[in-house]
Amino acid sequence: MPQLTCIDPNEQAIEVAFEPGETILQATYRAGVDGILAECGGGCSCATCHVMLTSDWDGTLDAASPQEADMLSFAVDPTPQSRLACQVQLNEQHDGLTLTVAKRQY
């Protein structure tokens, strides 16, 4: 299975296996990565699944939808690399990449 490296809010690196087609949220949530709350369970309505991707992800993803961008503007300290974990679908290209979970979700 392909894998991601997730840096949790305690700066622990956790290897997370994923199935292509699932979202970052599904993969990280199942693995129990700390710091992802996902109060709305992927409904793009809570902004508590905020993660930051490294530049290695550039070019592998579509830009955030207007809805996701709007929600992200209310996340705590969003950066240009911020995404909502529930809105990003993973594929084979993402094997080996790294993301950081936001320090605080609110």
């Binding site: 309505s45 809805q67 929600m71 503007s73 209310f74």
Partner: peptide
């Protein structure tokens, strides 16, 4: 409706 920013601003 399709206005997430307004919704989040309202929650705050």
């Amino acid at each position: 409706v399709n206005a997430a920013k307004e919704f989040m601003a309202a929650r705050r």
